[in-house]
Design a binder for these strands. Structure first.
Lengths: 346, 346
DNA sequence: CTGTTAGCGCCTTCAA
DNA sequence: TTGAAGGCGCTAACAG
């Protein structure tokens, strides 16, 4: 039988209340009694039953997710995943609330975080924007003892407790390697090629990092591949379409495209309409309805994906663990860079 | 406040015991009273608190994992993951036991499963071998109401409740696509090449399926790639080394190798020693110490991996859900085919 | 058939 | 500074 508080009380020769006080570090216990209790705990190898404790406290973990009200498929999917978690939340004694903020609006994010500060929930997850103001509120939340996880976009070297998202530099490098190899590899004629990069905005950290990784991998392993100046399509399908169309028209020997942001719908249309003799090799991010069908149709060659469902579930697990002061299983919380070819679509 | 059994009892005008009886489908309740209770439950939107129920029952889920006592890195890792789960098991009211069986020994597996039948644990996970005898025991376990999950290797169209492992046909296809493209792709000179396949044994379902997927993908998309007869290295490093060395010596224009089983250590050595002019493109399975370093060193070009930790945690979650008659989150339990290049090593 | 009562392991008043 | 008693939501005897 696993030891319980009763066993501790018996061995230490004190009452349950006293045991509870030392277990929870509450005041009002003489040092000697505390010592006796701690000794009993250690000798028994006692571990508290969290479920029972939560029942007694009728505790529910309240978490808030601050999400940008973006309308691209990925963010919509992220919202859905959080809503899914909300639907399941009663089962795991948690109560999750979503705060929507305008996308790319640091001020709004700061305000949302400040409102959270008053709420004092058991934890917050938010899609970070990297500005000094955001970092500042983060400090206040830390002071208030509210666990924080950065979701999808990180805020490194800040007070956040955890990052639930992919390594974007690695993602960019992976895209570079794949593109380089798909363009010819060691058995190709010469390895010379021109590639275009479509980003959302260079103001966003993920996009910057992906580009950085991509460029590095290309220049290290494929010195004969030339990368055109980055196109910033603001994750807007219409704009992306125009930009890619123009690029393909102006530069008829574009052999590859790396789309590292959202708005792939437009890029796909542009390629389909371009009617170039030799279709470029295309690598894009995020598996959505449009990238999925483009992959099946052979318009896109590979999709790098982050699993929004995993990110959300991971964020919740981590917040709960932090709230309870428990360790997390690191491997379980590492968000993978999924690579999809048309052969391994889920 | 979430409704409780007390609320139901009050509204239905019965006692707690009666509520409990209908909640748990126990006999001894008149149809009319049962109706009243069910009505109250529905009207309140009651959902039972599993944690409280388990506390009251002082229930612990007992699970057993039947694992082959194989000595390749993957199986050793799988063992470790289960042991890790055991270490954490007190926290989630579960009690996990490992039964080791000799590898590839259907009879031993059947005996282990039969012993489980007597134990009547809350669930079993086992690395399946596809024989009629194994299928038969599976039926008995089903009769006994013991949830089963097939781990790593599936037993399709059987009584097992779930499969925690990758889609091996898709894995083979993915390997084929990658190898084909890495060998040249559309920009290559001609696309003609000879590739070797190293398997463990064609008697094992996963290996057969991987080969099937691989061959299909190659013949569909790369008709000029010729696949040499499969080498069966029995997942044995020494044997694998000999076979690959011989193959490379006999056939000096092997341009690619797909190693779909274990024993990669030997294959890697063979390639390193071969000293061929142009190193072949190599795709292997399972990220282990040796494949990892071979990937870093450029001896292997891509590794397809199944996350043993994920498989074990998933198996436990699914078994618990089945034991409680609860649904699982399908997306969370889908085991991905991880693709690692040297750029996205974890 | 139905109800009463006493827990599961822990926490929280309220007294002493 | 300590302890006794009651309760969290549910289940399991044991009586009626």
């Amino acid at each position: 039988m696993k030891p319980t508080v009763h066993d501790i009380a018996k061995i230490a020769g004190v009452s349950l209340a006293t045991v509870d006080r030392v277990l929870n570090g509450r005041p009002g216990v003489r040092a000697v009694t505390k010592g006796k209790v701690e000794e009993a705990i250690a000798s028994l190898g006692y571990v508290r039953d969290l479920a029972a404790a939560n029942l007694a406290k009728s505790r529910t973990y309240s978490f808030v997710f601050i999400l940008p009200a973006n309308d691209n498929s990925f963010m919509i999917g992220l919202h859905e995943e959080v809503r899914g978690a909300i639907a399941r939340s009663s089962a795991d004694r948690s109560d999750i609330r979503i705060i929507d903020v305008p996308p790319f609006d640091a001020e709004a994010l700061v305000m949302a975080l400040e409102s959270v500060l008053l709420d004092k929930p058991a934890g917050v997850a938010f899609v970070a924007l990297d500005t000094p103001e955001v970092r500042a509120v983060t400090e206040s939340l830390k002071q208030a003892g509210i666990p924080m996880v950065a979701l999808v976009s990180d805020l490194p070297d800040s007070a956040r407790d955890h990052y639930a998202g992919i390594d974007n530099i690695a993602a960019g490098r992976t895209a570079g390697s794949l593109l380089g190899r798909f363009l010819g590899g060691p058995f190709a004629r010469d390895g010379e090629a021109t590639v275009a990069v479509l980003a959302g905005s260079m103001l966003v950290r993920d996009h910057r990092e992906r580009l950085e990784g991509f460029s590095a991998a290309i220049s290290e392993a494929f010195p004969n591949i030339y990368i055109l100046p980055v196109l910033e399509g603001r994750d807007d399908p219409a704009l992306a379409e125009t930009m890619i169309s123009d690029a393909l028209r102006r530069n008829r020997d574009i052999a590859g495209i790396y789309s590292l942001g959202a708005g792939n719908r437009g890029m796909i249309r542009a390629i389909q309409k371009a009617g170039v003799a030799r279709r470029p090799i295309v690598i894009a991010h995020e598996l959505t309805a449009s990238t999925r069908s483009a992959l099946s149709d052979g318009v896109i060659d590979a999709v790098l994906n982050q699993d929004a469902g995993h990110e959300v579930r991971s964020a919740i697990r981590v917040l709960k663990a932090k709230a309870d002061g428990l360790p997390v299983i690191a491997a379980q919380e590492r968000i993978r860079i999924d690579i999809f070819l048309k052969d391994n679509l889920p």
